[in-house]
Design a protein around this nucleic acid. Sequence first.
DNA 1: CTGCATCCGCTTCGATACTG
DNA 2: CAGTATCGAAGCGGATGCAG
Lengths: 222, 222
Amino acid sequence: MRSYAQFCPVARALDIVGERWALLIVRELLIGPRRFTDLRDGLPGIASNLLADRLRSLERAGIIERSELPPPAASTVYRVTERGRGLVPVIVELAVWGAPLLESGRGEDHFFGRWMTLLEVAVFRGVSTAGVAPLLVELRVDGEAARLDIREDGVQIALDAVGPADVVFIADGETAARILMRDIEVDDAVAQGLAEVIGEPDAAGRLRTLIGRVDGFRSSTA
Amino acid sequence: MRSYAQFCPVARALDIVGERWALLIVRELLIGPRRFTDLRDGLPGIASNLLADRLRSLERAGIIERSELPPPAASTVYRVTERGRGLVPVIVELAVWGAPLLESGRGEDHFFGRWMTLLEVAVFRGVSTAGVAPLLVELRVDGEAARLDIREDGVQIALDAVGPADVVFIADGETAARILMRDIEVDDAVAQGLAEVIGEPDAAGRLRTLIGRVDGFRSSTA
DNA sequence: CTGCATCCGCTTCGATACTG
DNA sequence: CAGTATCGAAGCGGATGCAG
């Protein structure tokens, strides 16, 4: 392990999660537990030996752990530990800072709908949920579903939510990004057939209210 | 430039600041403007060509900018832009997450007192400054001075502070780290001759109050 | 002296192939 | 499915050189 050898909290953190792919592996596992192959498929371009290396070092650092699923599904599953979950603020702040970089569009880049979940958490960070919470939102972006738990004290990924959500939001990746960055209004996107909001009128309205409270990132950047 | 080629705010952020040394260069420049040689000296182990490469790519990304000092001091100075200053939350969250990693002690690691400034900002993040602010603190850690601006709305690095501070805190690096992580009390450190707090009794008391409000990191980690 | 560029040995990465 | 093995390419670290 190559170290910066600095007595500095930032440098020591980067010694562990600063290597290529490390934080993206954590990102994937923050959204939910994954098997080796799932991770490889979800991180296009990573070499399998490199993934194995990273999983080992992240495990040694106490950030992730592996568990064997009982038969008949006998398989290895990776998940984040509590220490690993402590990286949420780091990743969210990176998402906040990186959000304006999505303006240039998707282009040829890879995309999975679940990545917008982090953008949601990032974009709703600091936004008041008063009058909106509690609300369980299901996001279906590019066919991939994730859930957001809107609570009085903030918004977070709902990892262990079961049952139906209060409201379902459906869109493709670029539309979701544009909505979150206030490049387009929810209602306009729906009117143009780019997005769909399904649920009780009250719940759907509360989701729109929340999105409406987002400031948008475009003004905050160069 | 190697890219992850993912339409994800985290991945796009890491495309820019995820390379080795990049965030540490920003860390240095967040503390204050620096010349090329200062940066190289402050980042032990970095190759000069690599530093030049990084400075170029960070400049292209709009994170830093170079300016020529007028004669007779004719020299190039690097400083962060507003966009670069937007990385403060990322670096502070990294410092928060990495703070427990300082527990193992300094060992053979390099150290500059200014690095504790970030730990201070990290550790005071979220701590109420009520009854303490406004307060201008000068930190002299391992002979290097930095200033903290304690305000009602939080604590930040005082980049352009002039004049005398309200209170001066003097310690070596490890003692400063131990105090901030609540491994030792300020008063005990002072009693043991490890630290010194100079200033009006009222101002010094307010600094102690603020430090006393810190929860400490040891419990929050594995 | 500062701000690099060049060269070189070493490490890491990426792609592919292969195995229990 | 969950990795390991291999190998060329790219990146890094250290030393040196050099122009302004």
